[in-house]
C-alpha cells in the first residue's frame, strides 16, 4: 500500500514528465530513486495516472537491467564483471564476497537487508581492474583482503 505522501510524490513525478509516452523510462528511474527499487504498487499507480497500460510499464521495466523489483540492502556493493575485471579475477572476488555477506544463491540481497551485491557489465574503469563500487565510491585494484576490510567498516557493531 502506498502512503498518501508517496502518492503525492508519484503524482509530482508524472506531472514533471508531462505524462508523455517517451517518459516511461525517466518516470521509472524517478520511481526507483524514490523507493530504492520499483514497487509493483507504484508502477500501477503511475501507469494509471499516465493513462498507459500497466503491462507496458512492466514490459519496459523488466527489459532494462537498471530496474530492481525487490527492496535492496542498506549498503549497495556493485561488482564490475567487465572483461578486464574478469581476467583479473573478479569472479573469485564476487564468490568470496557473496559467501562472506551470506547472500543466498541466486539472490542479490542478504536476509538482514544490510547488503546488496550486484554484478554489472562494465563500469568503464578497466585500467584499475578489478573494480568494486561500495555505496557509489569506486575502489580499484581490489583484492579479497582489501575488500573484506572495507566490508568490516560497514558491518553494524
Amino acid at each position: 500500500m502506498l502512503t498518501s505522501e508517496q502518492v503525492n510524490k508519484l503524482e509530482e513525478i508524472c506531472k514533471r514528465h508531462n505524462k508523455a509516452q517517451s517518459a516511461v523510462i525517466p518516470v521509472l528511474q524517478d520511481v526507483q530513486e524514490l523507493f530504492g527499487y520499483v514497487p509493483e504498487d507504484a508502477v500501477n499507480f503511475v501507469a494509471d495516472s499516465m493513462g498507459m497500460p500497466r503491462s507496458h510499464f512492466f514490459g519496459v521495466a523488466t527489459f532494462y537491467a537498471q530496474f530492481h523489483f525487490k527492496p535492496r540492502g542498506k549498503n549497495i556493493i556493485t561488482a564490475c564483471s567487465g572483461t578486464a575485471c574478469h581476467v583479473k579475477g573478479s569472479g573469485r572476488l564476487i564468490d568470496n564476497l557473496a559467501r562472506e555477506l551470506g547472500i543466498p544463491e541466486g539472490e542479490e540481497t542478504s536476509r538482514d537487508r544490510q547488503f546488496t551485491l550486484e554484478k554489472v557489465n562494465c563500469v568503464g574503469a578497466c585500467s584499475i581492474a578489478p573494480v568494486i563500487i561500495i555505496n557509489k565510491e569506486v575502489h580499484g585494484k581490489m583484492s579479497s583482503d582489501k575488500l573484506m576490510k572495507e566490508i568490516k567498516k560497514l558491518r553494524p557493531e
Partner: peptide, 19 residues
C-alpha cells in the same frame, strides 16, 4: 537504463521513444 543492445542505432531510438 542498462541494455547493451541500445548501442545499436534503431534500439537506441526505441529507447529514447520510451520503448
Amino acid at each position: 537504463a542498462g541494455a547493451f543492445v541500445c548501442g545499436e542505432e534503431t534500439a537506441l531510438i526505441a529507447s529514447i521513444e520510451g520503448e
